[in-house]
């Protein structure tokens, strides 16, 4: 299963309306974000909301991916404990490192056993958003058989570097190239960073072509309106 190849749609894990609407835009995957999109004081509430949403709403036509908080944030462990029991398609790991992935793996293995899920049925999608992760991207993506692809977060990476992000994205050419090569070598999905101006369809189109021509298999979206264009280009 690598069905989220072309598109994943990010929605805030603390926004009921977005959680309800997420599956209607035809994206391959939906990412319920407990990390960036959720303020520290709402982490508990968002986690419960996503858990209840997974039990209640019909996500049968789409891969459900949960972006948990990093383990060192103090929230990540509880995220996994609560959400993995609802059997999402995958867990997305921020600030990925082989060490973190190993820890998460063992937690997932325990939950799978307790819940009677097939072993290794919950997949992992590391986020490449630090210089460290970029440098060790091959090591990261080969650190677990659960890994089906990576998500490149250019905002995180450029912030880590102290660089300025532009719509054209010349500052991320190397990062994109490095990630794509690593993923292609392992036959994994490579999902490009989202285009943040959701009203600029032309800009999105150009950015999609750039990413596709570099070898990404798909692109993340932050707005349902972006899915159609992404699918047209990453065909």
């Amino acid at each position: 299963m690598k069905q989220y190849r072309k598109s994943i749609l990010f929605v805030s894990g603390n926004n009921p309306k977005m959680l309800q609407d997420a599956p209607i835009f035809g994206s391959d995957g939906v990412v319920f974000d407990l990390e960036q999109a959720v303020a520290v004081e709402e982490k508990d509430s968002a986690r419960l909301l996503v858990k209840e949403a997974l039990r209640f709403l019909d996500y049968s036509g789409v891969d459900v991916i949960i972006r948990i908080n990093a383990l060192d944030s103090g929230y990540g462990e509880q995220d996994i404990e609560l959400i993995a029991r609802e059997r999402p398609f995958a867990v997305m790991i921020p600030k990925a490192s082989p060490e973190q992935i190993t820890k998460i793996e063992s937690k997932l293995a325990k939950i799978e056993l307790e819940e009677g899920f097939p072993a290794e049925s919950i997949k992992l999608i590391p986020v490449i958003e630090t210089a460290y992760a970029l440098q060790y991207v091959h090591k990261i993506i080969t650190s677990s058989p659960r890994i089906t692809g990576v998500f490149f977060n250019a905002e995180g990476l450029t912030a880590d570097f102290g660089m300025q992000r532009t719509k054209k994205g010349e500052e991320i050419i190397y990062a994109r190239s490095r990630i794509v090569v690593a993923c292609r070598a392992e036959k994994l999905n490579a999902i490009d960073t989202p285009f943040l101006d959701s009203n600029d369809y032309e800009g999105l189109e150009k950015d999609c072509y750039r990413a596709r021509n570099m070898g990404f298999t798909g692109k993340a979206a932050i707005d349902g309106r972006q899915i159609k264009i992404i699918h047209d280009i990453f065909d």
């Binding site: 609407d21 209607i24 835009f25 009203n199 707005d223 349902g224 309106r225 159609k228």
Partner: peptide, 11 residues
């Protein structure tokens, strides 16, 4: 509308 759901319906 700029509502993504409304636009989806329209499409």
């Amino acid at each position: 509308t700029s509502d993504p759901v409304g636009l989806r319906i329209a499409k």
